[in-house]
Design a protein around this nucleic acid. Structure first.
Lengths: 208, 208
DNA sequence: GATGGATGTTGACGATGCCAACATGCGGGT
DNA sequence: ACCCGCATGTTGGCATCGTCAACATCCATC
């Protein structure tokens, strides 16, 4: 057979690493990075503390792995929203896609604060040596692809692409952070919408 | 006399709250928010664990207070850099001041990562009820004042001010975060400078 | 079938946050 | 001047966490 997906519950779990990561993702969702505890994930996986040490060097290692999964969740929402975009011309489509991506980014931060904070908890270069899942979609690769499309459709001048990338990333990520943990924390919902519109419009304008 | 600055070291410390906060700021500087521990600050203040509970409800309370001090540090650097700006016309001066503020923001994040992370550790609305030091300068108030100057000097149209505020805050904060904990983490120094220039130029352009 | 290495378990140690009970001494009221 | 209350510190203890060491189990390979 390919692999025992359903965990056999004998002495050996059979699929513990994934189970631990899943538990970590759950904990991160509700409690953020500080909730991703070695003993807690072990408990959730129905296994004894210390079992995790056979799969992760230490808590930081686990957290880094969970953080990557959170990044992937962000990517999934971005892709989903991007695929919904429809437009006449290729140029308009590229523009709308970029906006959809940006909006997804902010929405993710606001609707999944635990995941968002965990994804950027950094702790360490969670692009650690070894098994970074290269196949997993990356939020910034998606943003980059959207910018490539803008260049392809003539909206964005090729020489401006590099700068636009930094500008777009920064604006969208910064807004998300400020709304979540910054001085915009308790902004009324209507103002939030206005702020998002303003920032996305600013990005659009800065594209030329 | 005004106040016993030098701590009298009897049974009662005499100035414990401030001593604990200072110790917390030190720990935050080198270790970030996770290093601001109740027992550690007590130790640093030469006092027994639990003494801190006479001045802070819990660790989160202490951390929030320390976070505010970190915010103030950021403000101080911004003010310092802003005051260095010289320019012929009032308009150019206002523009240069905004840029100086933005650059200071990013520089602070990169040179004082522990403080920066602590300042935005949020944990809870560290604008808790009660004694928020209103006199302390606020990074966003400074940014707001700089934008006001741009309106006053005719660089920025009044109706565009609100949007510009969100745009500028987001861009500068987002860039800082991405350089510190995001995918731009290990960017070579030359590219960092380019990215900062690009984002600041983008802000300037978005002002019209 | 035996056996070795991968996987899980048990137990322990130090550190942390927080609670309860106790100690100290400064400052205000008489 | 005295005394006593209450803010401030201390001691001790508990539950939880990360991590190490020693041990148990079982799957795969010969």
């Amino acid at each position: 057979m390919v692999k025992a997906v359903e965990a056999s519950r004998g002495y050996h779990h059979g699929n513990l690493r994934d189970a631990l990561i899943d538990a970590g993702v759950d904990l991160a969702r509700s409690g953020g990075p500080n909730a991703v505890l070695l003993r807690a994930v072990s408990r959730a996986a129905g296994v004894s503390h210390n079992a995790a040490y056979r799969h992760f060097a230490d808590q930081e290692d686990l957290l880094g792995t969970v953080a990557q999964r959170c990044m992937t969740q962000l990517s999934l929402l971005m892709i989903e929203r991007m695929d919904l975009v429809q437009a006449r011309t290729a140029a308009r489509r590229a523009r709308s896609r970029l906006e959809a991506i940006g909006r997804a980014y902010v929405d993710f931060a606001l609707t999944e604060p635990g995941w968002f904070r965990t994804a950027f908890t950094s702790a360490r270069p969670h692009t650690a040596a070894g098994d970074v899942d290269q196949a997993a979609p990356n939020p910034y690769a998606l943003l980059g692809a959207a910018l490539d499309d803008l260049v392809r459709t003539g909206v964005l001048a090729p020489h401006a692409r590099a700068g636009a990338q930094y500008t777009a990333w920064s604006a969208v990520h910064g807004l998300s952070s400020l709304l979540l943990d910054g001085p915009l924390r308790e902004l009324p919902q209507a103002d939030v919408a206005r702020a998002v519109d303003a920032v996305l419009a600013g990005i659009n304008r800065s594209l030329g």
